[in-house]
Structure formats: C-alpha cells, structure tokens
Design a protein around this nucleic acid. Structure first.
Length: 425
DNA sequence: TCTGGGGTCCTAGGACCC
DNA sequence: TCTGGGGTCCTAGGACCC
C-alpha cells in the first residue's frame, strides 16, 4: 500500500451507490399510512384521492391532525378495476407485486391481475421534495455526490471521514441513519472500488441493506450474476450475448477481448470486456449541464393527422409552451428543435432542425417544430407527440441578443401557415 | 382496451471546409 | 485527372437508464 510522508496509508478509491428503497411507494405510504400492507399501484393521472381529500376539508379535527390524507377512508380510494384509459404502473407495493404486477406494466393488464388494488396518481412534485431532502442529507456528510435521477446517487467515499473504515460500511451506516431520521425512508448502499461495482452491490442486500465489495470479490460475488446486471447491458445486448451462449458476467469475462470487439464493435466490445473484469474509472461527476429538454404526451386514443387536426394542433401548441416555460424557468435556451411521433404500430419517427440562434420562445419553437412535422409522413394514426429542444446553452450566455433576434425570426415567418391548424403566428 | 415520460449517449452517413 | 485525408456539424434512429 502507498503511504504519505508521515507514513499514513493513502486512501483507497471507495465509491458508493445509494438507491432509495421502493421510493415512490414509500413516499406515498408516509402520506397514506392506512394503505400499509395493501396492494397499491402508482401510475396514471386520475384518481378519487383528491375528491376524498376535498371532502375532508371542512373537518376541523382532521385538518388539525397535520396530515389530512391519513384520514381518507380506504373505501374512498380508487381501485384498479375503475381505471379507464392508457398508462403504465410506475411502482407497485410489495403486496401488489405478489399478484404479478410490476412496474412498466399496462394499467389494464394490472387491473386483471388485481382489480381491488388501490390506485394512486403519480405525484412527481412530492417525490422531488423527498429527493431534495435525502440528497441534502448526503451532501452535508459527503460532498462528492453525483445525481442519477430522483432516487439514486453515487458518492465518492474516498476522502470522506469514515469512508475507508470497514471498506466504507461505517460511513454507509451513518448516511442510512441520517436519511432515515430526516425523511423516514430507507435506502440501500453498495460500496466498491468503482461506480460499476457499487451499482451492482447496492442491490445485494435490499431493502435497507449495505454491501461492501472489494476488488478480490469479483469472482465470488460478481461473476455468477447475469450479464443484464451490468449497468449498460439492456435487453438487446443481453439477447445477443445469450445467442452466443453467454449468460453470466463470468462467462463474459472468459471471452477474448478481440472476440467481443469483432462481434460488438470496437467501443462496445472493449467496454464489455472491461466491465466483466470489474474495471471502471469513470469519476463521480458532481455537476453537469442539461443537454436537452422535452415534453411529450400519449393521447387517450390514437389521433388521425387530418381528422383530428384541431385537437392535435392544440396539443402541439401546449407541448411547445411547456418546453418553452421549462427552458425559461431553468434559465436555458436551445438551438435544435425537434419533434417525436409514435404511430399506432409503435414505430417512432423523429425530425429536428437547428436554428441559427438559440431560443426559449414558445412561438419560435412551434414554428420550427411545425417545419419538422411537415417532413414526417403522416399516413398512420398517431399515439404520441413530443417536442424537444436540444443544443442547450445557459440563457445568460446566449444573452439578450438571442431574444431580440428570435423576435425578428418570428416576425419574418409570421405568415407561414401551420401544418395542422393553418393558424398564423 | 397490452406497452409513460424525461433524459443521455452512440452510430452512421452526408455536407462542407481545409 | 486521379486520388487523399481529417474535422466538424447536422440529422435520424436506436439502446439504455430512472
């Protein structure tokens, strides 16, 4: 082991991956403790919950309790069998999973499996509040944190006090305890020499678990796992690997690097080989800038480009306004405007167009997105429509010049007619 | 009544420039 | 005339992740 001039051992790289346990469901159960132990699914928008909450608005005792939601009678919640429309399950509680319900499952299919399951609408605002809370707890203890979405982070333990003790277990326990105290939520932590192994390790002892992995644990703990457990190997790559008789990470590691490159390409092949051998030197990235912002929506029924053009036009305008307001609120402008369509056969088409200048203006975005739409063949009915703005820059960097120029662009194109509504801008 | 929404990154071809 | 590269930007699609 290396040491500094005082003879202290230099720290070994220790990276943690922290994953909140059944995050959305756990947050909902804090608000609705009466649902504990019942099959509950979260997904879709509509639900009787708001009406039930409103019905309690006049009850002073309930309002004084601090959490009126806890007083909603179980019979007042929506059940899956009452759900109408499209949408998928975002999360299912453990009792619901026993019926075979899982995330990404269609609501209608889930309703057949467990019609009596209670259905709650997704409340991203609330999940984001809890997300900010648990991340702040971590930052106060270990400042080198990388965001990986609403319920996951990587943390660099290497130079944090306690981060080396028992391979990181001491610090992991402290963080778990602090998060539980601040949010009443549990999480699972994996600590390993790098992000790749830490991510796998955090799954080992779920829920509320800690797993410590060292380099020398590769053969015993990692090689028996399915290739799919490698973050970055999805269903397609896994199927191809299986086609070659490779099922476990150990079998992948046994393959010659050149063989993998020959079959999966230079970059992917070499990466697969490194991953199977537990090698990963990606740093923990504490700050990053967004690349794109988008809004998309799946219609309640498939829409016809001509017959439903008024409806489509209204939705299209709303999406552009939403993206524009997202950009404005977060302080970004974008240069590449694009549309995304999903047809009734689930095929996806995208078109984009790069403007001369950055913009966050709804009408400029709609104008450019409308041009993109004109390049898509619209024979089939549409299931989904999306609007995307990419090549982002911070609004202050692009300065006010962009705003005034965007206005000129809008003026210049003021009399172009729109593909669906013929509206003038 | 199968199959959401918001992202990132990679690849590959063509245009265009040097 | 024939044959050459590299580099960057743009566009479309696709895999993957949470």
């Amino acid at each position: 082991m290396n040491s500094d001039t005082l003879g202290n051992p230099s720290p070994i790289r220790r990276i943690a991956h922290l994953d909140m346990d059944a995050f959305y469901a756990s947050v909902e159960l804090l608000r609705y403790p009466q649902l504990k132990g019942l099959p509950v699914v979260i997904g879709g928008g509509r639900s009787a919950v708001q009406a039930a909450l409103d019905a309690l608005a006049d009850d002073p005792e309930v309002q004084a309790s601090g959490n009126p939601r806890a007083h909603i009678p179980i019979a007042s919640f929506s059940q899956l069998k009452d759900y109408v429309g499209r949408g998928v399950i975002t999360t299912a509680t453990y009792p619901a999973r026993k019926f075979g319900i899982g995330s990404a499952m269609g609501m209608m299919k889930a309703a057949k499996l467990c019609p009596q399951a209670i259905q709650l609408p997704v409340d991203f605002e609330e999940y984001r509040r809890f997300s900010r809370a648990f991340k702040q707890v971590i930052l106060d203890i270990a400042p080198q944190m990388e965001n990986r979405g609403v319920d996951e982070v990587y943390i660099d333990f290497t130079d944090v006090p306690g981060g080396q003790r028992e391979g990181g277990r001491v610090l992991a326990r402290l963080i778990q305890k602090s998060i539980l105290e601040a949010t009443r939520l549990t999480c699972s932590v994996g600590v390993a020499p790098n992000k790749l192994l830490a991510k796998m390790a955090s799954e080992f002892n779920k829920p509320n678990g800690i797993a410590i992995v060292y380099e020398q644990d590769l053969q015993s703990l990692v090689w028996p796992l399915a290739c799919r457990k490698i973050n970055g190997i999805g269903p397609k790559a896994d199927a191809r690997l299986q086609g070659h008789g490779i099922h476990t990470i150990g079998e992948l590691a046994a393959k010659d690097e050149q063989w993998l490159i020959d079959h999966f390409g230079q970059a992917t092949g070499a990466w697969m080989h490194r991953a199977a051998w537990g090698r990963d030197d990606r740093p923990v990235v504490t700050e990053s800038e967004p690349v794109s912002m988008s809004r998309e929506t799946t219609f309640e029924r498939d829409l016809h480009a001509v017959r439903d053009r008024m409806e489509l036009g209204a939705i299209f305008t709303r999406l552009c306004e939403q993206v524009a307001s997202d950009l404005l609120r977060k302080g970004y402008v974008g240069k590449t405007i694009g549309v995304k369509l999903r047809f009734d056969d689930f095929k996806i088409a995208t078109r984009d167009q790069t403007l001369a200048r950055h913009t966050a203006d709804a009408q400029t975005i709609r104008q450019a997105a409308g041009q993109c739409l004109k390049r898509v063949p619209l024979q089939r009915r549409l299931r989904l429509l999306g609007v995307r703005v990419g090549s982002l820059a911070r609004a202050e960097d692009a300065s006010q010049v962009a705003a005034s120029e965007a206005h000129e662009v809008r003026e210049a194109s003021a009399y172009n007619s729109d593909i669906w509504t013929g509206q003038l801008f």
